[in-house]
Design a protein around this nucleic acid. Structure first.
Length: 264
DNA sequence: ATGGTGGTCCAACCA
């Protein structure tokens, strides 16, 4: 009789937590409930020496962090330890801590927190477009040497109008503008697939809702948190979804976790 | 409704 190995799918997730200090209890609760293999965090807002490695270890997760005080900051928590960790990318400004890459069981994971851009035409907007360009040239080399690759995080761009609650009202605004969408498309043209759209999804699926003006209650959101995969991983993807649960808790992040499951 | 909320860290910036 053939041995029936019930293979557990690999589960990768991304969540902009808007302060790991404040959201740690929610992250621990979510890890216990969802049991992802890898969770990428953005906007941790703590220097590495203050990242809660120990609390996460007690919950059964290893962590790596690339953080700074007050702003930005990314981290990856995982069941298994990482290899080939990268915190610095030669083609982007490394003063702002926005990238963290590592490999887990042969899968290259790139965690990004793309600059917000403030408003179209601003200095920060120019910084965002430059940042995208710098990321792209590095990502091209990562893709060449990685058989299986995911880039996930807060991209601060809604790829299409169906990712925006009020496309007419948002037209031309930051997070939606043509130049930002073109910059994201250039990344994707390296050979990356937005796996959320490989499956049927609920109407008006978003991953971020403004704290102001009852954005979440009215589902006034954008889908700006993405999981992009190279073709080898996209073909293994079985399911992707956005978990609105944490956004409904007391003192939530303004973002919800996004999750993708892969067959082995 | 041209406002509103939230995190960081105490005035102002960022989202």
């Amino acid at each position: 009789m053939a041995k029936r190995n019930k293979l557990r799918p690999m589960k990768f997730a991304s969540w902009n937590v808007n302060s790991i200090r404040v959201r740690l209890p929610q992250v621990l609760g979510w890890l216990a409930a969802e049991q992802p293999d890898v969770l990428c965090l953005q906007e941790t807002k703590v220097p590495d020496e203050e990242f809660p490695f120990e609390a996460l270890r007690e919950a059964g997760y290893e962590s790596i962090a690339n953080g700074q005080r007050t702003y930005n900051g990314v981290a990856i928590v995982s069941r298994t330890p990482p290899t080939n960790v990268i915190r610095e990318v030669a083609t982007v400004d490394n003063e702002q801590k926005r990238v963290l890459a590592a490999s887990y069981n042969g899968v290259r994971i790139i965690n990004v927190y793309v600059p917000n851009g403030s408003e179209v035409g601003s200095e920060k907007y120019a910084y965002k477009l430059g940042w995208f360009a710098g990321l792209k040239s590095w990502l091209a080399s990562e893709l060449k040497r990685s058989e299986r690759l995911l880039i996930l995080g807060d991209f601060n761009v809604a790829p299409e109008d169906r990712d925006v609650y009020d496309p007419e009202g948002w037209r031309g605004s930051v997070l939606v503008s043509d130049a930002e969408r073109a910059a994201l498309q250039e990344l994707m043209d390296l050979g990356l697939i937005d796996v959320f759209r490989r499956f049927d999804q609920p109407e008006e699926s978003y991953s971020w809702w403004d704290y102001r003006a009852a954005g979440f209650r009215r589902n006034h959101g954008l889908r700006i948190d993405l999981i992009l995969c190279n073709p080898a991983m996209a073909s293994r993807c079985r399911k992707t979804w956005i978990d609105k649960g944490p956004r409904q808790l007391e003192r939530p992040s303004d973002h919800a976790p996004v999750i993708a499951e892969f067959g082995v």
